[in-house]
Every structure is written in C-alpha cells, then in structure tokens.
C-alpha cells in the first residue's frame, strides 16, 4: 500500500482553493476596487512595477495564510487521529500539503497580472516574480511548517522571525550603526529573507545556494520532526 496520499490530493487542493484561494481572490478584488474603481484618478502607471509592489506588500501575508496551523491545527483539533490511523505517512501527507501551498503562491503574481490586464488592458507578466515568491515561500513557508510541527503559534513565530531578520538586515547595512558580534551572529543564523526580496538583485551563485540549502533544511527538519515525534506527543491521550 502506498503511504503517499496521492488519492487525497484533489481534496487537499479543493480545501486550499476554498480557503486560501478565496482569500487570494478577495485580496485581488479589493486591490482592484480600491485602485481602479474607488480612486478618483486611476493610476495610469499600473504596470509590472506596480504589480511587483502589490505582490511584495501581500506576499508574506499570503504565505503565512497558506502554511499557518498546517500541522498544529490538526494536532490541536484532534483531526490527526482519524487521518493517520490509515495507511498514510504524516511527513508525506504534510509535505504534499506544503507543496500545494507553494503551487498556490506560484499563481499569485500571474493572478494579479491577469486581473489588472483584464481591467486596464495588457500588462506584461514578469515571470521572475514567481521564482522570487517561491524562494520566499521556501524560507518563510518552510519556517512556519517547521514551527507548526511543535507549536501552535506557528505563523506568529514565523512573522516575528521575519520582522527580526528584516530589522537586523536594515541595521547591519546601515553605515551609522555598528551591530555587536552577538547580533551579527543572530543575523547570520536567521533565514536570509533579504535575499528573496522582490527588489533584491537576482538570486545567483552563493546567494541562491544559501537560500536553497536553508529552505530545504527547514523543510527537512519539519519532516524529521514529523517522522520522529509522535503526533500525540505534548498532551494527554
């Protein structure tokens, strides 16, 4: 018997589209209504830069939505009991769910571009945005996935780490501030979110390796926790 829940994939996708997909649609609609319908003078400059800005503003929220309480929700509500009494491997089940989240994040930029192209005329699609968002998903989504395997406040902790890293990155690159060696160490330890920023230079060479290895490490660590820590651990039976 297969332990990969492939047959469950359509149900997972349906759940994701009905919740996170609906949120993506609602955010796109809201941006459209505010900028095109409500604004007395619709911005004539709406183009790839503007779309990139929108993706940057809402990308991290959407990633948190796609990954929050992915494991911890099932653990706390007790849903895992009926799911994993079947021939299903918890690491593979949640990896499948995480990858579907990556897929939904990948369509974010095309959805925005398409929505505004329909409303305002053709806007060229900037495909590098998809790669940028995916590398950001690998880090932030991977971090939330890992935290979710042990704690409930996964999205909150993910957000706090993201903000701390952004703040340390700003301080580290400020010529007026000299960070102590401790904070430099902390900065180097945290996920390199600054490398995945939409306005950062293209990811190549050692930066690309750093992001890929760090992200893959987070996901592998999450899978290892799911493999070795029983799902009922941390509470009474």
């Amino acid at each position: 018997m297969s332990r990969i829940p492939i047959r469950y994939l359509p149900w997972m996708l349906r759940d994701l589209l009905r919740t996170q997909g609906l949120v993506l649609f609602a955010i796109s609609l809201l941006i459209y209504v505010i900028t095109v319908r409500i604004s007395p003078r619709p911005p004539a400059t709406i183009g790839p830069d503007w779309i990139r800005n929108m993706v940057q503003q809402s990308g991290w929220i959407f990633i948190l939505l796609c990954t929050s309480e992915m494991v911890s929700g099932d653990r706390i509500q007790g849903y895992y009991r009926s799911i994993f009494s079947r021939p299903v491997s918890p690491p593979l089940y949640y990896l499948q769910r995480w990858l579907l989240g990556a897929l939904l994040v990948a369509v974010m930029a095309p959805v925005y571009t398409l929505a505004f192209s329909l409303a305002l005329g053709h806007i060229p699609m900037e495909w590098s945005l998809v790669g940028r968002l995916e590398s950001f998903y690998l880090l932030l989504g991977g971090l939330v996935f890992l935290v979710s395997t042990v704690l409930r406040a996964d999205w909150l902790l993910g957000l706090m780490v993201f903000m701390l890293q952004s703040m340390l990155n700003a301080l580290h690159h400020s010529p007026q501030i000299d960070l102590s060696s401790f904070w430099v160490f902390v900065y180097q330890l945290l996920p390199p979110f600054h490398l995945t920023g939409l306005n950062a230079p293209p990811l190549t060479g050692s930066d690309l390796t750093h992001v890929l290895l760090y992200g893959a490490g987070l996901v592998l660590a999450a899978l290892a926790v799911l493999r070795w820590r029983p799902l009922g651990a941390g509470g009474r039976a």
Partner: peptide, 30 residues
C-alpha cells in the same frame, strides 16, 4: 496496513459534509 479506528471524541472538521467526509477517509485509506 491501516487500522479501523473510532476515536473516543469523534473529531472531524465541522465544515465537511457527512458524505464527503466518508469519501475523504476512503481516499486516505487508499
């Protein structure tokens, strides 16, 4: 192999409908 298991407190996501819940569990049972 899988185990047929009835939990002490039946915990099934409240928004699922009864029939789809059974189809979901059947697909998880491969």
């Amino acid at each position: 192999s899988g185990v047929s298991y009835l939990t002490e407190l039946v915990s099934i996501p409240p928004r699922w409908n009864l029939e789809s819940a059974l189809y979901r569990y059947a697909s998880l049972s491969n």
